[in-house]
Computed example of a mutant assay.
Amino acid sequence: MKKIIFALIITTLISANSFAQEKMIWHTDINEALEIAVKENKKVMLFFTGSDWCGWCIKLQNEVFKTSDFEKWSNDLVLVELDFPRRTPQDETIKAQNRQIQAMFKVRGYPSVYFVNPEKMPDGKMNLNSLGKTGYVRGGASKWLEVADNIVKKTI
């Protein structure tokens, strides 16, 4: 009987953890993310990172993006990770896409976080109206979210 109860508790914990992880989705395909944002009338957060070598990127991930405060705050955004790893293999299509977007936004340093409001044009092309950018902000999640919130709440 104890084994059954233990198994149920473990299964419940695993299920709850899986559910929590599924709530916050980081897209890697920019076109898919933009389509979702337009369809759901959401703004987009573009996170330019060097996930396996950039210390400030890892610090931003741990101090802000992996917190429940960020998870709640980001519900009205579509999140896009544009990664530039040095050791981790990456699909060539994603690599080319990320380089193209990096050039478009003239990103020179990491981490860089841009907020855009996508607009689908009558010809089918996507216009990205820039709201602003930030990077690592000292002070943890609350300070970073304060800066980001001021950017996201801007009107075009």
Rank of each mutant, 00 (worst) to 15 (best):
K2Y: 06
K3C: 03
I5Y: 13
A7Y: 14
L8V: 14
I9G: 05
I10A: 12
T11M: 11
N17E: 10
I25A: 03
W26S: 01
H27L: 11
H27G: 03
T28D: 09
D29N: 13
I30S: 01
E32D: 15
A33Q: 04
L34N: 03
A37F: 00
K39H: 01
K42M: 04
K42E: 01
M45D: 14
F47N: 05
F47G: 02
T49C: 06
S51Y: 01
S51P: 09
C57A: 09
I58P: 06
I58M: 04
I58D: 08
Q61R: 05
F65D: 09
K66P: 03
D69F: 02
D76M: 11
D76T: 07
L77Y: 06
V80S: 02
D83R: 12
F84H: 10
P85F: 05
P85A: 09
R87G: 14
Q90T: 04
A96P: 10
Q100G: 08
Y110F: 11
S112E: 12
F115N: 06
P118G: 04
P122K: 10
D123H: 04
N129A: 15
S130L: 12
G135A: 06
R138C: 10
G139Q: 14
G139H: 13
S142I: 14
K143V: 03
V147D: 10
A148G: 03
D149P: 03
N150L: 03
K154Y: 03
K154T: 14
